[in-house]
């Protein structure tokens, strides 16, 4: 599944880049993130609990940040699995300064398998979009709260 989109953050580019690499900030912004721990330089292990409608699932995932070109782009590699299924994702995030903030655009490929993909195919795209939007919304809230 291809995913792409963009979101405007009310932050200067440097600061936005820095926040997107900060494990504490990410842990707070990631929907359902229960724990995030560093396992190596730019590599993290994350426990997530996704609750959606009647569905609730725990995911164990690994997040890796690569190809860092501050402050304009980096690559995010995610691998996760849990009872409902597994996912593997590879995405490129680009940060472009705009008049009053930064435009973060993402483009990537996500593979989802297991029960969730077999029965929930029609819902994957919408759910992915919703989770990504929640992530950016909560990231910009955290950021504005910190700078206030």
């Amino acid at each position: 599944m291809r995913i792409s989109g963009s979101y405007s953050l009310p932050l200067p580019q440097e600061r936005a880049y820095q926040l997107l690499q900060d494990p504490e900030v990410l842990a707070k912004a990631m929907p359902g993130c229960e724990r995030l721990e560093k396992i190596a330089e730019n590599e993290y292990r994350m426990k997530m609990k996704i609750v959606l409608a009647s569905l609730a699932g725990n995911f164990d995932s690994k997040v890796k940040i690569a190809d860092q070109t501050p402050p304009s782009s980096f690559r995010l590699l995610v691998e996760g699995s849990g009872r409902p299924g597994f996912l593997r994702g590879d995405g490129l995030l680009k940060l472009t300064p705009t008049g009053n903030g930064t435009e973060v655009s993402y483009e990537g490929d996500v593979q989802v398998g297991g029960t969730i993909a077999a029965v929930g195919q029609r819902l994957l795209d919408g759910t992915a979009k919703m989770l990504i939007r929640k992530f950016f919304e909560s990231l910009s809230q955290t950021a504005t709260a910190a700078s206030a």
């Binding site: 409608a53 009647s54 569905l55 609730a56 009872r83 029960t115 969730i116 029965v119 929930g120």
Partner: peptide
């Protein structure tokens, strides 16, 4: 909606 999800054990 709920019972099929429970049968697949996606909801518990």
């Amino acid at each position: 909606s709920l019972i099929p999800m429970m049968k697949l054990r996606l909801a518990a």
